[in-house]
Design a protein around this nucleic acid. Structure first.
Length: 854
RNA sequence: GCGGGCGUGAUGGAAUGGUAGACAUACCAGACUUAAAAUCUGUUGGGCCUUGUGCCCGUGGGGGUUCGAGUCCCCCCGCCCGCACCA
């Protein structure tokens, strides 16, 4: 039994540890399957174990915690787990930079971060914790991989990587800086390797169509995913070539704008197109050009922003509608082999990129449609109207003369098919997911290369294939490749000596099913159907908008793949019922300049009133993402030490809407702390009040209380935490000024504590106990607003004249519209402004507003 | 370059298409105090005059829809996120 000390001053350091111990002792956050209660699964995107928590974590996990605690109070059986996205490059980089081993570094960081997280008082079931680098986890991931392989969901093909020719190693995109390797500074090249792929593209249509079922996802995320999948309807057809090398008498192209076929002025192929590859073998000029095109990074951004280069390879093709019309063929660096057929036709009049290209290489620019019938067909820039806009087609082709782009495309496909020129095709931009990584600190791909049997899956009983510990990071590249013995194994098929695959998996694989693993985190199969069926789906998923596409799309694919392989029920193929994307925590940047005018950054604690300790004024850059290099960081541990976790939790929720960035300010944190102190003082005052004296305004206080219950409940349910907190501030002020009697005040302060409990659980427990509440506030039922107390007898309606507010009237809430209108028109100010004029129209929105139009 | 989002007082922000600026910070003023801190109370978008129950302007800029726009539509500017090997 917990007895609070005699209440005097609000001292979080003392109460927070005590209540955390109480929750742990009672196991209140242990997720238990229950037959009576509805379940609720709340999950925040798990962190990378960098070693230090930052304010962004505090905000993210506090939001999830508010939901979890609210759901506990509303009678749910709650699953709120935590784990670690623990594989990845930073651990290897640390090993290279400062020595040590990725495993030791990672587990050390996890221990540190767990220690930093626990004082926040989060409602997490720590018994379910795991790290993706635990062999227990990644062994099950290997089992999933083998099942996917058997189902044909995984295959091998060649793909392009960034190659550092000096370090002789593959580079991640972030390791390519301005087209050069980050360590060696060498110009990066593109190189082909055989790699493993998940067949996510087989599910393009499904993943696109199912977005419509995700009612509780932000529309922007669904839109981004839809655009990423990129479904298009176009025409695939061939240009016949003139005197081309053998096997290339046709060049297949795909276009989404067949209606512009009469504006074609050249054919472009990718430097990786089979024809380009053939020609570069014998033609040194073409070889040099292709090599030039292959310089630089592999990102779409790098390719799209690079200067457009092309080379006329001398080959000519015939236009499908006019065999006397010949077009040149260019190799061009902006054409992707991965999309369509790796070949396009260029229509400079209606595509800005083609326009720039044609201008550069002196190619003809032929208009096929115009904004108006009498518009000048001479083109000075690409005319690219929305596809839904009607335009005038000046060349004879297909469909109406005046039609939208969409109509024209459909008509063009139909016409081409009828003439035997190609066929209508639906394509998707989404590519298969390359999962091979030539790195050590990841989940080993459980396959074996046998001279006799080829690529053979490892036997499940040999899992997990564990990473060897004795590796060296002295030289760049994958230490698994260099390991003296680890690769050696017996072929699972024929038993002969064979070699292990040394590639490991993309860390996106690790994070694509962890949410399912949390439902049975220590099982010896990836999931347990019964547990998965009970806890899935995640009812509320919370994380950063930066994961809007890849992580969420991959997870959606994995849920389908796991369903196909019998690891998830059909009901869980859309694993996240509701998604919320939260904003960042930002802070001002403080800087001075050195003698060369370079910025010198200063920590917030070294700056007071815009000055350093020695009086030097600092430049201030507002609202910047917290980053170590800019020194605009606030350490949550320091804040917890000064003010307590409740203050940190309260502040990160109070100042901004959760989906937007919040600026951390010292004064804001101070204010949050003061406010919690005020609430504490009200509780103390209540306990010291005479118990049997009559007060004044009991009903007014309780009315305000019920309104607050209503508003805060709505706020929590709709992620309006900042608005909910504003209501709590207002109610605190009302309570503080109230002269109500003890019974009403006690009810008010206990209710206030309950409404605050999801945000400031320690303070809430302390007040609950001080007021004689039963049990823990954490498990006490959420207060219910009394509907009768929410209805006002009279309402104040603003009166607008021509949309400008000119007066207001008080009327009974249930007064009929006609009566309200009559009263408004007889209002003194209204009569004065109307000055005898007759209103043309009077709009009365009951309970809202009156607008008089003259 | 392409896709998505955001932009409101000195500051963070509030506002189912219906009183723009709730709530908080900061500032200023007052109470308490020998004083300071702490605490409490109050004022504060800009402008105008005739100081009123007053008028005009005001939600990045420009245009539009509507009785009514911060909110919806179009164009522009700025910032942020993503672009498939960062997590």
């Amino acid at each position: 039994m917990i007895r609070s000390a005699k209440m005097s001053r609000y001292s979080p350091a003392e109460i927070e540890a005590r209540w955390q111990a109480a929750w742990e002792k009672d196991d209140v956050f242990k997720a238990v399957r229950s037959a009576e209660k509805p379940k609720y699964y709340v999950l925040e995107m798990f962190p990378y174990p960098s070693g230090r928590i930052h304010m962004g974590h505090v905000r993210n996990y506090t939001m999830g915690d508010v939901i979890a605690r609210y759901k506990i109070a509303t009678g749910h059986s709650v699953l709120h787990p935590m784990g670690w996205d623990a594989f990845g490059m930073p651990a290897e980089n640390a090993a290279m930079a400062i020595g040590g081993h990725p495993k030791d570094w990672t587990y050390g960081n996890i221990a540190d971060m767990r220690d930093q997280m626990k004082p926040l008082g989060l409602s997490i079931d720590w018994s379910r914790e795991f790290a993706t680098c635990d062999p227990e986890y990644y062994g099950q991931q290997q089992a999933l991989f083998l099942d996917f392989l058997q189902e044909g969901l995984v295959y091998r093909k060649n793909a392009i990587v960034n190659w550092d020719p000096v370090d002789m190693t593959v580079l991640a995109n972030e390791q390519v800086e301005g087209g050069r390797g980050w360590r060696s500074g060498a110009l990066v090249e593109r190189r082909e390797l055989t790699q493993w792929f998940f067949k996510i593209s087989d599910h393009s249509e499904e993943l696109l169509a199912a977005l419509d079922t995700l009612d509780n996802w932000p529309a922007k995320v669904k839109l981004m995913q839809a655009n990423w999948i990129g479904k298009s309807r176009g025409l695939q057809f061939a240009f016949s070539t003139i005197d081309a090398p053998e096997g290339f008498d046709r060049i297949e192209v795909y276009t989404t704008r067949p209606d512009t076929l009469l504006g074609a002025s050249f054919v472009g192929i990718s430097p990786d197109h089979p024809l380009a590859k053939l020609l570069e073998k014998t033609n040194p000029e073409i070889a040099a050009f292709c090599a030039e095109c292959r310089k630089g990074g592999t990102t779409e951004e790098a390719i799209e922003t690079a200067e457009k280069l092309g080379m006329d390879i001398g080959l000519r093709v015939r236009h499908p509608f006019d065999t006397s019309w010949e077009l040149p063929v260019y190799i061009a660096n902006f054409i992707l082999m991965d999309y369509g057929t790796g070949a396009i036709f260029g229509c400079p009049a209606h595509d800005q990129r083609d326009f720039d290209f044609a201008t550069k290489y002196g190619l003809p620019i032929i208009s096929t449609f115009l904004p108006a019938e009498d518009a000048d067909p001479k083109v000075t820039e690409a005319f690219v109207p929305a596809k839904s806009e009607k335009v005038y087609y000046n060349g004879k082709f297909a469909g109406e003369t005046w039609q939208t782009g969409e109509e024209a495309v459909a008509a063009a496909i139909e016409a081409c098919e009828a003439q035997g020129v190609g066929q209508g095709v639906t394509k998707y931009r989404l590519r298969d997911w390359g999962l091979s990584r030539q790195r050590y600190w990841g989940c080993p791909i459980p396959v074996v290369h046998c001279d006799a049997c080829g690529v053979v899956p490892e036997k499940k009983e040999n899992l997990p294939i564990e990473l060897p510990y004795d590796v060296d990071f002295g030289t760049p590249g994958n230490p698994l490749d260099r390991h003296p013995t680890w690769r050696n194994c017996a072929c699972p098929s024929c038993g002969a000596a064979a070699k292990r695959e040394t590639d490991t998996m993309d860390t996106f694989v690790d994070s694509s099913w962890y949410f399912a693993r949390f439902t049975s985190p220590h099982a010896d199969t990836p999931t347990v159907m019964e547990d998965a069926a009970y806890w899935m789906n995640v009812d509320q998923y919370i994380g950063g908008i930066e994961h809007a596409i890849l992580h969420l799309l991959y997870s959606r694919f994995f849920a389908r793949a796991m369903q196909i392989t019998g690891h998830l029920p059909e009901s869980a193929i859309e694993p996240f019922d509701a998604l919320f994307t939260q904003g960042m925590v930002t802070h001002e940047i403080y800087l001075t300049r050195d003698d060369k005018d370079r910025p010198v950054y200063h920590l917030p604690e070294d700056v007071t009133d815009g000055k350093l300790a020695d009086g030097t004024p600092v430049e201030i850059i507002p609202s910047a993402k917290m980053s170590k290099s800019k020194k605009n960081v606030v350490d949550p541990l320091g804040i917890i030490a000064s003010y307590g976790a409740d203050t940190a939790r309260w502040f990160v929720l109070s100042d901004s809407p959760p989906e937007r960035d919040v600026e951390w300010t010292a004064s804001g944190a101070e204010a949050a702390f003061k406010h919690l102190g005020r609430v504490w003082n009200i509780s103390t005052r209540t306990t010291e009040m005479p118990k049997d004296e009559e007060g004044e305004g009991d009903t007014d206080l309780l009315r305000a209380m019920h309104k607050t219950i209503h508003d805060v409940t709505m706020g929590v349910e709709s992620f309006g935490f900042n608005a909910a907190i504003a209501k709590l501030y207002a109610f605190t002020a009302t309570l503080q000024k109230s002269k109500a009697g003890h019974t009403a005040q006690r009810e008010a302060i206990m209710t206030l504590a309950q409404l605050m409990a999801p945000m400031t659980p320690h303070l809430a427990e302390e007040i609950w106990t001080a007021q004689g509440g039963t049990g823990l506030i954490t498990t006490a039922p959420w207060p219910k607003a009394d509907a009768a107390m929410l209805i006002d007898d009279t309402v104040t309606l603003p009166i607008q004249i021509n949309g400008k507010r000119r007066a207001e009237i008080q009327v009974p809430a249930d007064m009929p519209k006609e009566e309200v209108e009559k009263r408004a028109l007889n209002h003194e100010a209204v009569l004065r402004i109307l000055d005898g004029a007759t209103p043309k129209k009077v709009i009365v929105v009951p309970g809202r507003i009156i607008n008089v139009v003259v």
